[in-house]
Design a protein around this nucleic acid. Structure first.
Length: 424
RNA sequence: AGAGAGGUGGCAGAGUGGUCGAAUGCGACGGAUUCGAAAUCCGUUAUACCUGCAAGGGUAUCGGGGGUUCGAAUCCCCCCCUCUCUACCA
């Protein structure tokens, strides 16, 4: 969430950022926040003063008791009783005000970086570059949902039987391709300087709040209510929350982690056209990269992550394009997001396979993730993450783009990982 | 899952109602000493919020929440977690 200090000291810039986001009630919400913040300060001051007096009296009473002056002690207790009522009233109101302030702050999205193009929808996203030639397929080329049946490598019906729609079963070469991609992505991340972590795929409520999935996107996560745990929609949640409530020593920065996890998304209400086959699933595999950096380095880190992801797509020989998301299409918590899309030759459309974002201090504020600059006050760090990469749509593009009469010819980078070169 | 023990500052570890934000040790940092270092000595060594131009002052925090009390790290209740034993399991 945004820092109150920023809202207070740079109100105009905040309002401009929210306007770029098309946030309708910016003026009113910001005013409400500023009023609540002022009220919070006033209450804190009165509370502290009353408490300070009570503490002083308690000390005096202690002295009187020791000296055996019971009557004197009783006299002071009268005042102390009043103060107790006061501080109690103050702290109750303070709790209420803080809670309301918190809720108001949760409502505000992150401010877009200056390079974010203004826009309302995906149509307004900026195509930064397009790399690689789109393959020319034969007239009878098949979409991946037909190919997976033809080669019997992914089985939706079976997944449907044991779980439900959107939970495919990978079989034979299909299963091995999954494992190969995961290993390939993890190795590439490690070579690029990311430390590998393996994290739980169920997280508690605090973690959900830390990275911003809660409270806004509650319905998007599977919730194991018996234990009040959430199945992660992305490894971003556990990996970033590893550093919740931490103050990181400068020499530990930047933090660069990579991890593979299955991801779970309810995708409530988002089914429709274009979601056949692997295009949208409830469970899928993904390798995620996360960076935590000092504020001044975060945009260089984002470019660095982007370069890494592009390198993966190039090694997979997939044509792709890089989008800079416009202000209306960016996720709530992001300050700048690049989406990477691969060309799916049989479907004749771009498929999003990665999203790399800089959240600046938006998550760090919730996470209380700070560092201590040399001889300075603690400061919030910047958090970033990117998919590197999400498997299903990569698989869809690999299958479609590389289909031949003799089978699906996989890119050279995967041969040693798969143990085969062609899916037959 | 059952029984018992326990959760204190970066770490170790005292502290069972009254200057306890907390002894002591270690570590770290600054200084003295040294040609330099080790050792030694002196000092510093949490976080958040409020207040103040600042220096400073104040409040809160001893796993989390609530309660008793003039006063709680210390007493009571609930929850979480860790360890040991038993049971079970991969």
């Amino acid at each position: 969430m945004l820092q109150v200090s920023v809202i207070r000291e740079q109100t105009a810039a905040v309002l401009a950022g929210l306007a770029k986001r098309h946030y309708a009630t910016a003026e009113a919400d910001v005013q409400a926040i500023l009023a609540l913040d002022q009220r919070r300060k006033d209450l804190q001051t009165s509370h502290d003063q009353a408490q300070a007096e009570a503490n002083e009296l308690a000390r005096q009473i202690g002295g009187l008791m020791k000296a055996g002056d019971k009557a004197g002690a009783e006299t002071l207790k009268v005042r102390t009783g009043e103060l107790k009522q006061q501080t109690k009233a103050h702290s109750e109101e303070l709790t209420g005000v803080e809670k309301e302030l918190q809720q108001q702050l949760y409502k505000l999205p992150n401010l877009p970086h200056e390079s974010v193009p203004a826009g309302r929808s995906a149509d307004d996203n900026e195509v930064v570059r397009e790399v690689g030639a789109k393959p020319e397929l034969a007239a009878d080329a098949k979409p991946h949902w037909d190919l997976i049946e033809q080669y019997d490598i992914i089985d939706f019906a079976l997944g449907n039987k044991i779980t439900g729609a959107g939970f495919p079963v990978y079989k034979g070469q299909g299963a091995r391709l999954q494992r190969a991609l995961i290993n390939f992505f993890l190795d590439e991340a490690r070579h690029a300087g990311y430390a590998e972590v393996q994290v739980p795929i169920l997280v508690n409520e605090a973690s959900g709040y830390g990275t911003g999935q809660l409270p806004d996107k509650e319905g998007q996560m599977y919730h194991a209510t018996a234990d009040d745990l959430y199945l992660i929609p992305t490894a971003e949640v556990p990996i970033t929350n590893l550093y919740r409530d931490d103050i990181i020593a400068p020499d530990q920065l930047p933090i660069r982690n990579a991890g593979y996890t299955p991801c779970f998304r309810r995708e409530a209400g988002s089914w429709g056209a274009h979601v056949r086959g692997l295009n949208r699933l409830h469970q899928f595999d993904k390798v995620e990269i996360v960076q935590i950096t000092q504020p001044e380095n975060s945009y260089a880190a984002l470019e660095d992550m982007l370069a890494h992801i592009e390198g993966l797509l190039q090694k997979l020989e997939l044509p792709y394009r890089v989008l800079r998301l416009c202000s209306g299409d960016m996720s709530f918590t992001s300050a700048l997001t690049y989406d990477l899309e691969v060309w799916s030759a049989a479907q004749q459309r771009w498929l999003e396979v990665s999203s790399a974002s800089n959240f600046e201090t938006y998550q760090a504020n919730r996470l209380k993730l700070r560092y201590r600059p040399e001889n300075g006050k603690t400061q919030f760090l910047h958090t970033l993450n990117g998919s590197a990469l999400a498997l299903p749509r990569i698989v869809a593009a690999l299958l479609e783009n590389n289909q031949t009469p003799e089978g699906i010819r996989l890119p050279a980078a995967l041969h040693s990982y798969c143990g085969f070169e062609v899916i037959r």
